[in-house]
Nucleic acid binder design. Structure first.
Lengths: 232, 232
DNA sequence: CCGTCTGTTTGTCGCAGCGCAACTTCTCGA
DNA sequence: TCGAGAAGTTGCGCTGCGACAAACAGACGG
């Protein structure tokens, strides 16, 4: 692990309140691993052997329904922990994690978790916060799915992606990893047909411009209005 | 707090791995409080001052959307912690908690949380498990909302209620607290009209029998088949 | 014992969005 | 350079579910 990564990791929220020595102590037990685009870091149902921190790249967490449909739970950004089955008392991964671009992760063996926790009480506090944040996000999605129309849900999903992975360009804000209409459909509980229609309409209106696996939001503010206001 | 409550609390999962002395130590800082039917324990957005353990009764956790609609997040059973905003680093309650029957709770001041955690490392582990379980439940709901038709969602919701609050009677399994069609609609993201139609149909088929704020599941197995099988 | 209120039932109607299918376009590997 | 497959677009018909409306029943207070 390079010195650059080292100092980058030190300021992550998950390590807040940990001393420099503690962080070194924690990192010593981890090993880096590389996953190329479209490779799975782990699969749903697989026995959990490691937990992970994403250093570079982007990971998609997906769940398979009993009927065989896939639902996108979230996209993981650099700096986030994932695959923390151990922390929540599971012995299998509850979802499949797939690299959507070439990615670099740190992997800890599950067996390291209890001792890390014992030596770093702040880690427990920070992990609870992370879980709490994810719980809130998930509940927000339940509420959206319950009460909002498809077009709004798509708008919210895209704004969330912009917040998480937006990169300014001269045209607007680019979502900085390859994402298909199918992905957005699986995030919003609709079909790729409907997403395609909606995005086409927005493109005509000049709100966005999009291509194959690529979305640029030209007018984030207008999209926000669309997502929030009650008018049609 | 009575001796009966005392021994009841001692075997809760949230206190797993805590010694008897530790539990006494934890309980010493809590105070009991009573809430009568339809009273709010706390409201969404209110500054969080306490966290709670439900001893007896039933609490409904509800979220209000920006548009003013209510969504039922979950029903809290005796033995569950709730209002743990402090643990996840929030300073306001993210939902409204309402007693659906006369209820008895234990309340800790928020200020007690850090020291409790410091003195009882197992509490952190158990809290993470609880949060993890809620996260999975919430994600399951997202998946259901994304992929399943209304009738199935209602079936799942009722089966969940049966698991959580079912009481055997000679007619079948009674959901042991007053619950309206409106509540079920707010759990499944539909309207009370649709819920009413579905329950009426099930009643005709003999799957359930229901009345005002009351549901008895006569044929849990058949309802389960309805919820899981792919056929209509 | 009666009036009122809340929760429930039932019917009709319209439309959003899904399934299906055909077609186009882009990408990538051989 | 070309072919195959993946990703996206678009039209059409059908239906499930929400909106609105109206009546009904059980609970509760006076």
């Amino acid at each position: 692990m390079s010195a650059i990564d080292r100092s980058l990791v030190a300021c992550l929220p998950i390590f807040a309140e940990c001393s420099s020595e503690q962080i070194d102590d924690i990192l010593r037990e981890a090993r880096p691993a590389r996953f190329e685009k479209n490779a799975n870091v782990f699969e749903q149902g697989e026995k959990a052997a490691h937990f992970y921190l994403l250093l570079h790249g982007r990971i998609r967490a997906c769940k398979l329904t009993p009927a065989g449909e896939e639902v996108v739970i979230r996209f993981i950004a650099p700096g986030e922990m994932f695959g923390v089955a151990m922390a929540i008392g599971r012995d299998a991964y509850p979802a499949t994690a797939t690299a959507v671009v070439d990615s670099l992760v740190l992997a800890w063996p599950n067996s390291a978790w209890p001792s890390l926790l014992a030596r770093n009480p702040a880690l427990a506090v920070n992990t609870m916060r992370t879980l709490g944040a994810r719980l809130e996000e998930s509940q927000t999605r339940v509420i959206e799915m319950s009460t909002e129309a498809v077009e709004r849900r798509v708008a919210h999903a895209i704004l969330r992606l912009v917040n998480q992975a937006g990169r300014k360009t001269d045209d607007g804000v680019l979502i900085d990893f390859p994402i298909s209409r199918q992905d957005i459909a699986r995030m919003t509980g609709t079909t790729l047909h409907t997403v395609s229609r909606i995005l086409s309409a927005w493109q005509t209106l000049g709100l966005i411009s999009s291509g194959r696996q690529k979305i640029v939001v030209r007018e984030p503010h207008k999209l926000y209005l669309l997502a929030e206001s009650s008018e049609k």
